[in-house]
Nucleic acid binder design. Structure first.
Lengths: 227, 227
DNA sequence: GGTCACTAGATTGTATACAATAGAAAGAGG
DNA sequence: CCTCTTTCTATTGTATACAATCTAGTGACC
């Protein structure tokens, strides 16, 4: 009855592809995902498409109505608020746990990421678009590293799923230098608290960091709605 | 881009059936779930079986290894510990939120459930087996009501998924009168805190309640392993 | 006797054909 | 011109056929 748990089974290639496409905005929210069209596009039959769609539904990126089909999930303002509320709890808890479990290597990685994100002027060769993508990646890795350091596989998985959602809003595109500075500041504080093994503070700062992220996204959404 | 979110799509009948069977122990942990066998048993083709299995994998009750097939998920002692750690955070947060959001009707329901669970001697007509099942159901509804009262659909969903897992252990079978009394006590305290709108206390008591549940299950597992 | 390659059976992954359903378009009646 | 019914089309849900893959067993070779 009791046995080691395995790593998550490799989700099919086409699941990954669709997920990418959705997160990158190739398919707009509420857009219907017709199975045969997807099948034709991806040069595959409907069967693996259907499997991928049910997996995406479980991930929360797609909504399937029986006998009516799948559509890219859309998020209301309330949804976003809910999601960030959860993120604050989950990531806060992860930071708390990580404080007493994080390894030297992981801490070094955090500091590296913090440094890199501060020197966003590192490679002038990048376009704005590329820079944003890089930032999203680096930020994701920062939070991901802490999630891993919490040493609770389920918690890590929940965080990954919850964190990715707001990406569909492309909120990062509106990041101003000011917000960038503040965000980096919190990253530094969090890293410092983890380095010091201060669980309480790591949790608190992480929560505040997430809450400010929520405020930012909510503000951006409101402006978008008004416009 | 912004729209109301719908209620979760009605999961297929056979998904429900399989899930039930697993939770009730009809299929043992690590037992392989061969598609054709299930198809024959449920009088249906492999197609809906496969769909149900991928959904069950997403729920965490089944493990699918590519090209090798599905098996009922087994949980190690570490897994159980992780799960209860998460439960404490999620249900604690739910209780906190519920304190300022719960309705009069929901509060009444909680008190009713608490009363019913205390009078487990209500119907002498039930067998021990039936009584356990009833208790599991009532306890699930108690926690479920609070999850709903937290007014965060995602949080509610996560709790449901997390809470059901330990059911595969049938831990309730080992519940002694003493543990029953303690558990009921906490249910009372939680209901009281919610009634009073005391968010802080609701969270704290809920967390302690969950932690004691973890201790109990871990103890039961250890004894089982030793035996 | 042990180890490796290989074949045979079982099981999963994919493609296709068909049935059921939903939604739109067309038509009859007022 | 409006409304209700009916038909038709597009799309999803299910069944089945076939291909790919894994596992176990057999036998050759050392």
């Amino acid at each position: 009855m009791v046995r080691r748990s395995q790593r998550r089974s490799g989700p099919s290639r086409i699941f990954e592809t669709l997920r990418r496409s959705i997160l990158e905005g190739e398919y707009a929210p509420n857009e219907r995902l017709v199975e045969e069209q997807l099948a034709e596009t991806l040069r595959v039959s409907r069967t693996p498409i259907r499997k991928a769609l049910t997996m995406l539904e479980a991930e929360g990126l797609v909504e399937i109505e029986p006998n009516k089909g799948a559509a890219v999930r859309s998020f209301s303002v309330e949804d976003v608020s809910e999601i960030y509320d959860l993120r604050a709890v989950l990531e806060g808890h992860a930071a708390r746990r990580a404080a007493s479990r994080i390894s030297r290597e992981e801490l070094d990685r955090l500091w590296d990421l913090v440094g890199d994100m501060e020197r966003k002027d590192r490679g002038q060769s990048l376009s704005h678009e590329e820079e944003i993508r890089w930032l999203v990646g680096a930020n994701g890795e920062f939070h991901g590293t802490i999630a891993v350091a919490a040493r609770n596989a389920r918690l890590e998985q929940l965080i990954r799923r919850t964190v990715q959602v707001p990406l569909v809003f492309k909120a990062f595109y509106w990041y101003t230098p000011h917000e960038h500075i503040i965000s980096n500041h919190y990253h530094r504080q969090i890293s410092g608290a983890l380095e010091a093994g201060d669980a309480e503070r790591a949790e608190i700062v992480m929560r505040e960091h997430v809450y400010e992220g929520r405020d930012f996204v909510m503000r951006a959404l409101k402006e978008e709605t008004d416009a």
